[in-house]
């Protein structure tokens, strides 16, 4: 008798709390703020312009450049082989197979790094992997690859080495006439979404 009374009160109180608490939807894939902070501090989500340029020269299929600027900006100028996913369309279902995948390294870029960083944070928070940022964005790309500054004599030997390599890159990206063409921008089709692992249950 007494147990029923106590249990009833406890259950109703807990039920009231449960009813007052806001609805919440957890996703096991998502990262919390602390984990995200850790990753940001590690800074290994950055890809340098040199690394990217080398990858492009070598036609490395591991890298997928993703332009997160607007469509107009993308049409005006873009890096070779880049895919345009404008910021506001980031979480469109159609793009999900490109940003939530495990096969390639996605390299986000914008003019500076602000927009690309925002995109990276959003995707990382969702738990998507293999996403990176082009360090310094297009501005840095232009300054480093397309218009490298000759080092002064006091700079180390390494600087000269880099400079020579960059001249070669410049030759590659400008010498062949079309530094960045939009001709290879194909309208990508949506791909069926991969599903989360589901559990069986009940009595079947």
């Amino acid at each position: 008798m007494k147990i029923r009374f106590v249990l009833s009160i406890v259950l109703v109180c807990l039920g009231l709390v449960a009813a007052i608490l806001p609805q919440r939807q957890n996703s096991s894939m998502e990262l919390d703020a602390k984990q995200l902070l850790n990753e940001i501090q590690l800074e290994n989500y950055m890809i340098s312009v040199d690394e990217m340029a080398n990858a492009l020269i070598n036609n490395d299929p591991e890298y997928q450049l993703i332009d997160v600027r607007s469509e107009e900006a993308f049409k005006a100028y873009s890096l070779p082989g880049a895919l345009n996913i404008p910021f506001e369309k980031l979480f469109d279902e159609a793009w999900a197979p490109y940003i939530d995948q495990v096969a390639r390294k996605n390299v986000f870029y914008s003019n500076g790094t602000t927009l690309a960083s925002e995109v990276w944070m959003l995707t990382r928070q969702k738990g998507f992997k293999n996403n990176y940022i082009l360090r310094g964005g297009l501005n840095n790309w232009y300054a480093t690859v397309l218009d490298p500054k000759e080092p002064v004599a006091t700079d180390g030997e390494e600087a000269f080495f880099d400079y020579r390599a960059r001249l070669g890159m410049k030759q590659f990206f400008t010498g062949e006439g079309t530094p960045a063409s939009t001709s290879n921008v194909k309208a990508k089709k949506p791909v069926p979404r991969r599903k989360k692992k589901m559990v069986a249950g009940g009595c079947s």
């Binding site: 559990v199 069986a200 249950g201 009940g202 009595c203 079947s204």
Partner: peptide
């Protein structure tokens, strides 16, 4: 632990 509840008749099946 497993994401599923209990059962009994399924085992008999």
């Amino acid at each position: 632990l497993t994401g599923r509840g209990l059962g009994a008749s399924g085992a008999m099946k």
